[in-house]
């Protein structure tokens, strides 16, 4: 069993003494503990008059105080001391129907688009794999063509592994490196422009790798030599 700290015991004893003392005091005052000022105010107001007027007619209720008061003001507690609203109310709507309807329409639109597109455009199926016949050019899937484009500029270890690895690590660390707490676009001009530059850099590399690289992965113009690109 835990020891009750001494200062708490003392405090409890003091409270008990005080309570005993005050009950004696209130007994001597005949139980009337409503401050005179409040009583006067009540009497001055219309409600007080009504109570006083009604009291003789209906008789004093059991347990009522002097003057027929059936309620007492024990204490006035300011709202801030016991309750504090920290969270501001958020403007919310029901998920059904407001969000689910939007999601449903979006899903339906995407399904319709995919269905029609797949109906009209066939996925490529070239000749069966042949190890003795290397197509020229050989290209990676489009989302890796930015990397393949980097291969023309750097050593494969840098272009194929180090740079994309650093890109991934930078993405993962972004929330820990960005110490700016604001999400307002006007406060985030640096990060926004960094990301935009990164995305444009990547998009340009991918587009060059996709459409401007021909046989031998040499630079071509798609309008001059045709497109060497399969999805």
């Amino acid at each position: 069993m835990t020891e009750i700290p001494e200062h708490l015991l003392k405090r409890a004893q003091a409270a008990r003494d005080k309570a005993a003392g005050s009950s004696d005091a209130s007994a001597s005052e005949g139980g009337d503990r409503i401050p005179d000022a409040l009583l006067d105010r009540t009497k001055a107001s219309g409600a007080g008059a009504a109570v006083v007027a009604a009291a003789p007619a209906g008789g004093v209720p059991v347990g009522a105080g002097p003057g027929g008061h059936t309620q007492r003001l024990l204490t006035v507690v300011k709202s801030g001391s016991i309750q504090e609203a920290k969270a501001a109310p958020v403007d919310k709507v029901h998920t059904w129907p407001h969000l689910l309807a939007v999601e449903f329409v979006a899903a339906l639109a995407l399904t319709a688009f995919l269905f029609v597109f797949s109906w009209v455009v066939n996925a490529p199926l070239l000749q069966a794999a042949d190890f003795n016949n290397t197509p020229n050019p050989s290209k990676a899937p489009w989302y890796f063509l930015g990397l393949q484009e980097l291969l023309t500029m750097f050593h494969p270890m840098i272009a194929g592994v180090t740079l994309p690895g650093m890109g991934l690590v930078a993405l993962i660390l972004a929330p820990y490196l960005d110490r700016n707490a604001s999400n307002k676009p006007e406060d985030r001009k640096f990060m926004t422009s960094m990301m935009t530059m990164f995305l444009i850099f990547w998009a340009v590399l991918t587009i060059i790798g996709s459409f401007f690289r021909g046989p031998g992965f040499n630079f071509t113009f798609p309008w001059r030599d045709g497109i060497f690109f399969e999805l």
């Binding site: 070239l126 794999a129 042949d130 050989s138 990676a140 393949q148 494969p156 194929g160």
Partner: peptide
């Protein structure tokens, strides 16, 4: 397992 698949993956895995 067509020419597109085989050689795209060859390029990709050579990088790795």
């Amino acid at each position: 397992w067509d020419q597109l698949a085989l050689w795209a993956v060859t390029v990709g895995t050579n990088m790795m």
